[in-house]
Design a binder for these strands. Sequence first.
DNA 1: CCAGACGTTGTT
DNA 2: GTCTGG
DNA 3: CCAGACGTTGTT
DNA 4: GTCTGG
Length: 236
Amino acid sequence: MCGRYTNTLKREDLARIFPEAAHLADATGCERFNIAPTQDVLAVVERKGERRMGPLRWGLVPFWAKDVKIGAKMVNARAETLDSKPAFRDLVAQARSRCLVVADGYYEWLRPEDPKAPKVPVHMALAGRRPFAFAGLWTWWRPPEGGERLATCTIVTTRANAEVAHVHDRMPVMLCDDDSRDAWLDPANDAAALAPLLEPLAAGLLTVTPANPCVNSHVNDGPECLEAPDAPLTLL
DNA sequence: CCAGACGTTGTT
DNA sequence: GTCTGG
DNA sequence: CCAGACGTTGTT
DNA sequence: GTCTGG
């Protein structure tokens, strides 16, 4: 699954892979080492054929929701059931509700055999920690009591590939090249055309490395999150 | 008909 | 809003 | 995902 | 144990 992730590059470095980053109003969502649900994340959406990069709140709040709290449960959306779930079905069908959630890695927590021992965080990334995108869905929500409308998003998950199956049986849908990212946002693509994008990443691309236990707490959001502790990691 | 859910993961 | 369950 | 809270009344 | 908050 995907409940915590990284987007560590500065705006200008990120722009080498995502040109839209060069036009960001501010650096919100960049240089992040511990991105957690309900926070603003950096995403790319397309409207009227033009791509915009900006912040979305992680945890999808459907437009019909009476309470913003539902968003905390809508952090992920299973690819296998996307077309049938009331909260997501209408979104995946419309290109304007699909988005790219910009990232350069994500965390999982390994459970030791001894259930009383602490879980061990690990970080998954491409070679050179190259940035990529999670397949995402987003929508607007207007609080019933009035006030500012809120743009929220969720990250699509799928089966784990062979490489990370020993870590967890699910993984986020990763769009690692321009073609797949273009296809996810393309209004011409229907559910059948999108299906091949929602498969696990090909093996051989992701590296699993130990992360620092300080990542457990979302208040820690610096480079130290990716610095492995000295103790040998027996679970990898 | 109305009421209530609408989500995923991990663990037992 | 829309579907499921009763 | 993990961390942290989890409650009400009455009084200052 | 379970929910909320980040």
